[in-house]
Write a protein that binds this DNA or RNA. Structure first.
Lengths: 209, 209
DNA sequence: GTCTATATCCAGATAGAC
DNA sequence: GTCTATCTGGATATAGAC
């Protein structure tokens, strides 16, 4: 199906452009040129510019779930990952964060989509909610589930799982934001990620019952 | 000077519009209408649209420093604030974060400028660096200075000040981001801020020498 | 499905009268 | 400093031939 192929190519190029310049700054002509066709031909695949944007939002959700599966991080149900974190060492914990960190930065679709969302997060209440849900709540809820299990197992200090998750996750999100803006600082941020994990690991184990 | 008055009104209205819709989505006509003049008259005060944006970036830096002074938070040199944090209670610490949190959200200029920066952070390397410097590095460095002093005084655990600062500050930044996108969740975020401060305070004191 | 040609609109910016 | 009138360019989108 060359038809569906073109549709996908439009989505890919549109995401590339939107993530770099923002929705408003990108013209239909630019998208068409990137795909290798003329602007009016885009309307054979999408009814308009907004429809391309909407299709992007819808389609990336699926890919995210599919791809994170490969990293043994199942954001939709933390229960499956609890064995991975049980009696985990500090080095192994860092290795785990490092993987998701680098994946988040280097997977083209994921990182482009996140940058696009950063630019467009105030465009509508729906996008605002989607941003918060995807990049804050989901990550916090996932880790809260992990920490709840580790507390039950007596491995870490008995603190509120939600607060622990926020403490652990927010610095990671902040560092991802820095690298999104300034990719040349990735090495430095990786260092900070390392010291963050070390500190968190130590603090959370020192107070254990 | 009614002249300078108009110039300031242009900046105010432009910031209001840019923060809500982004630079590209706002037209000179919209800005002019908000000020109460016609579009060509804007060119008597600024050479073009970009110049209005640039003036905004330059002028808000000054106001930020001036306003935070009133809250006894001197981001430029933490040394002055160390006495405030020495032997601080958990409640007093929360009250301090709560103040800066609410100020950041409710001061019109500050919150609008931050939203505008969120939208435009990828527009140029300079803006990217400015965003990181203002909303990450500066805050982290400030708190690292405070924590370094508290460690020297034997008040808190002897961990790396930078990592401690990241741990403390990143959740606050994340919660401000949530409220920027979804102001209706401010109450909920204030609750999370409370539990964050409580957890951090306890952890950092439990490991003290 | 792709194209050319075109319609319609609105943007940023300038000229010049008052 | 403000205005009206205008220039010029580029945007989204449609019509209709191939």
């Amino acid at each position: 199906m060359r038809q569906e192929d073109t549709k996908q190519r439009i989505l890919d190029k549109a995401l590339e452009l939107f993530s770099a310049q923002g929705y408003d700054a990108v013209s239909m002509g630019q998208i068409a040129a990137a795909v290798g066709i003329k602007a009016p031909s885009l309307y054979n695949h999408f009814p308009g510019k907004q429809a391309i944007f909407d299709a992007l939002v819808a389609s990336t959700a699926a890919q995210y779930e599919a791809d994170t599966d490969k990293l043994d991080i199942h954001v939709q149900n933390a229960a499956r990952d609890i064995p991975v974190f049980t009696e985990i060492t500090e080095d192994a914990l860092f290795e785990k964060v490092r993987q998701i960190f680098e994946y988040s930065l280097h997977n083209e679709t994921i990182s482009r989509f996140r940058r696009m969302m950063s630019i467009e997060q105030f465009r509508s209440p729906e996008l605002a909610a989607l941003y918060s849900a995807r990049y804050v709540e989901r990550v916090v809820r996932y880790h809260a589930g992990i920490f709840r299990a580790l507390i039950a197992a007596g491995e870490i200090a008995a603190e509120e799982p939600e607060a622990l998750a926020m403490l652990y996750v927010a610095p990671v999100l902040t560092l991802i934001g820095v690298c999104d803006r300034q990719p040349e600082r990735e090495g430095e941020c990786l260092q900070k990620l390392r010291t963050h994990v070390r500190l968190f690991f130590r603090m959370v184990h020192s107070g254990r019952s």
